Simulated scan of single mutants.
Amino acid sequence: MATGIREARAEDAPRVARIYVDSWNSGFGDLMGTVGLDDDRIRRWENDLTSGRTRWWVAETTTGRIVGMVGVGPSRDPVDPHLGELDTIAVDPTYWRGGVGSALMRTALASLAESGYREAVLWTVAGYTRGQAFYEATGWRRDGGTRDDGRQLSFRHSLRGVEVNVDVNPGKP
């Protein structure tokens, strides 16, 4: 189980990319096709983790192994200054149902609330029942939005009353 959450750093990119690929393939590879891990994907993740558009965290075990990640930022679809977005949340499949995703979600929601957003949106794959059940268990509700010819569904989460004092290690080197 993860024992700490800290801000992500550029050097986390190889492990973050691996978690993303493994989580994607295990979670909805059968719905969207599987993806692979290569140098280009790792470089894209390094850029994403450091670009500043999205704020990223990783969950670590006591031995320093990264086992999950989450990113939040301003909503991209729809564009709305009062709407934040859960960009990505992914956990190493061997750590599913161990509390890692819930801890990352609390961090994400707290950050969105602290940033002044009133509500948050996320997009997920239609038919991804495991993920949808997780989102609903953490307070997200379907809002009826779709995109990509119905292959993606949107969920919303009110940020009113979300606790913003989540203890997060800033991960300073």
Rank of each mutant, 00 (worst) to 15 (best):
Ser23Cys: 07
Gln152Trp: 15
Ala110Leu: 05
Arg142Thr: 11
Val67Lys: 03
Asp80Trp: 06
Thr63Pro: 08
Ala2Gln: 08
Thr3Leu: 08
Arg156Asn: 05
Asp148Leu: 13
Asp38Trp: 11
Ala10Pro: 05
Phe134Met: 09
Trp140Met: 01
Asp40Ala: 14
Ile89Glu: 02
Pro93Phe: 02
Ala108Pro: 06
Phe155Ala: 03
Thr107Asp: 04
Asp80Glu: 04
Ser158Cys: 03
Ala13Asp: 01
Met1Asn: 12
Gly139His: 01
Val21Ser: 00
Leu86Val: 04
Pro173Cys: 07
Ala113Phe: 04
Glu136His: 02
Asp77Thr: 15
Ser26Pro: 04
Val21Trp: 00
His82Asn: 12
Leu83Phe: 00
Asp12Pro: 13
Asp30Leu: 09
Thr34Glu: 13
Asp22Val: 00
Trp24Ser: 00
Trp24His: 05
Met32Gly: 07
Trp24Glu: 00
Ala103Cys: 05
Glu85Val: 00
Trp24Val: 00
Gly131Glu: 09
Thr94Trp: 07
Thr61Tyr: 08
Asp22Gln: 14
Ser51Glu: 11
Asp22Cys: 04
Pro74Ile: 08
Glu11Leu: 09
Asp149Trp: 09
Gly150Tyr: 11
Pro170Asn: 12
Asp92Glu: 05
His82Gly: 09
Trp96Thr: 04
Arg160Tyr: 12
Tyr135Lys: 04
Pro93Tyr: 01
Met105Cys: 06
Asp39Ile: 03
Asp40Met: 07
Thr3Lys: 09
Val16Ile: 11
Asp38Asn: 14
Ser154Gln: 06
Val35Lys: 01
Thr129Trp: 12
Arg41Glu: 06
Asn47Trp: 14
Gly27Lys: 01
Gly68Leu: 06
Gly161Pro: 08
Glu163Pro: 13
Arg106Pro: 02
Thr34Leu: 04
Val164Gly: 11
Ala110Ser: 13
Arg9Met: 09
Phe134Trp: 10
Ile66Glu: 02
Asn169Glu: 11
Ala13Thr: 05
Val79Asp: 13
Arg18Glu: 15
Ile19Asn: 00
Gly116Ile: 03
Pro81Ser: 14
Thr62Gly: 12
Val166Trp: 03
Arg44Cys: 06
Arg55Ile: 12
Arg160Ser: 15
Phe134Ala: 05
Leu104Trp: 07
Arg156His: 10
Ser102Glu: 14
Asp149Ser: 15
Arg130Met: 13
Met105Tyr: 04
Pro14Val: 10
Thr54Arg: 11
Arg55Gln: 11
Pro78Val: 01
Trp140Glu: 02
Pro173Gln: 10
His157Asn: 10
Phe134Ser: 09
Ala137Trp: 03
Arg147Leu: 10
Leu37Arg: 01
Glu7Trp: 12
Ser51Ala: 15
Asp39Trp: 04
Val16Thr: 06
Glu85Tyr: 03
Arg97Ser: 11
Arg41His: 02
Leu112Phe: 05
Asp77Lys: 14
Asp92His: 07
Tyr20Lys: 01
Val162Leu: 02
Ala110His: 02
Ser111Tyr: 12
Pro93Arg: 02
Gly116Ser: 01
Leu104Ser: 06
Thr129Asn: 10
Thr88Val: 08
Val35Trp: 00
Thr88Ile: 05
Trp123Pro: 00
Val168Pro: 13
Asp38Ser: 08
Tyr128His: 15
Val58Arg: 11
Met105Phe: 08
Arg147Ile: 07
Thr138Leu: 09
Arg130Ser: 14
Arg142His: 13
Pro173Val: 07
Asn169Thr: 07
Pro74Ser: 15
